[in-house]
Design a protein around this nucleic acid. Structure first.
Lengths: 145, 145
DNA sequence: TTATTGATGCAATAATGATGCATTAACATT
DNA sequence: AATGTTAATGCATCATTATTGCATCAATAA
């Protein structure tokens, strides 16, 4: 990992009142360099020997609470994580874009450009959050055939 | 359960090439009489002494495959089930309405009237299914305060 | 009424996630 | 630089949700 990137991750941690530990930097590094949202099992495969499973869960949970990453549930109900755009903060998430879950490669894409359209919902229902997951076959898997 | 309802459930099973067993009729009866989608744990609480947990999973899976019920993942990634509108069939699901997951009572509502708006997604991504879960506080819980 | 196939129950296992507690590491302070 | 304080980690354990294999049983067809 490059020096300036490490610096960037450390800043991000400090900015959020978190200590800059090796485990956290490693998780940030991995998430930053993936083009799609990353599942806990995937992370566990990569860093499982260095970082305890529970620590991983706690890091992801903390990051989510701080607005550093956002969580998407895929079609199987497993959590996937992706770095938030930098307009996110602890009390102000802006991750209301559409996600695409490929049925073939199982990847979860953040379609940052595609926002969830406004909805007309019955009065009385108070909206706090919206989660739109589209599933199908992704660009790469379509090419591959 | 009323006689004509039982008849109706039996027809539904036969129509889908399924045997009309007590367990299946019971599940259909419960799902039909609930105003919101029903989680596997809830069902297990109700019929857990009469129906084996594994059987319950298999019944729900079968029903979903046949288009009798549809599955919604709530915010925790646990499966919830609701009876499909009668236009659904094995190879033709029409459950693309919005779901509302209450953060307070945890209920999952099917907002049958609210359809998921059309999306413009990058070429190459082939859409098979869409799942929009809105979370917040539901009508009942808003009233209660 | 019996054969056949589908459905169920039981035992075991997997995957995902949470909690309590002792230990260790990071950072501020001296 | 040494030390104290608080946060972070690792380990053991447990909970929940879900799946698989196999033996048994029941529903429908013959």
């Amino acid at each position: 990992m490059e020096q300036n990137e490490t610096q960037q991750y450390e800043d991000l941690l400090v900015k959020n009142g978190l200590k800059r530990t090796g485990a956290r930097l490693q998780v940030l590094d991995i998430l930053s360099h993936r083009e799609s949202a990353t599942s806990q099992p995937y992370l566990e495969n990569v860093v499982g020997k260095e970082i305890d499973r529970v620590t991983l869960y706690r890091i992801l949970k903390t990051f989510e609470e701080k607005g550093i990453i956002h969580r998407v549930l895929d079609n199987h109900g497993t959590a996937n994580y992706a770095i938030c755009s930098n307009s996110c903060s602890e009390h102000n998430h802006h991750d209301e874009h559409v996600h695409f879950n490929c049925n073939n490669c199982l990847r979860v894409y953040c379609l940052d450009d595609v926002k969830i359209p406004a909805l007309k919902i019955e009065k009385g229902f108070q909206i706090a959050d919206m989660n739109l997951v589209v599933s199908g076959i992704c660009k790469d898997c379509n090419k591959a055939n």
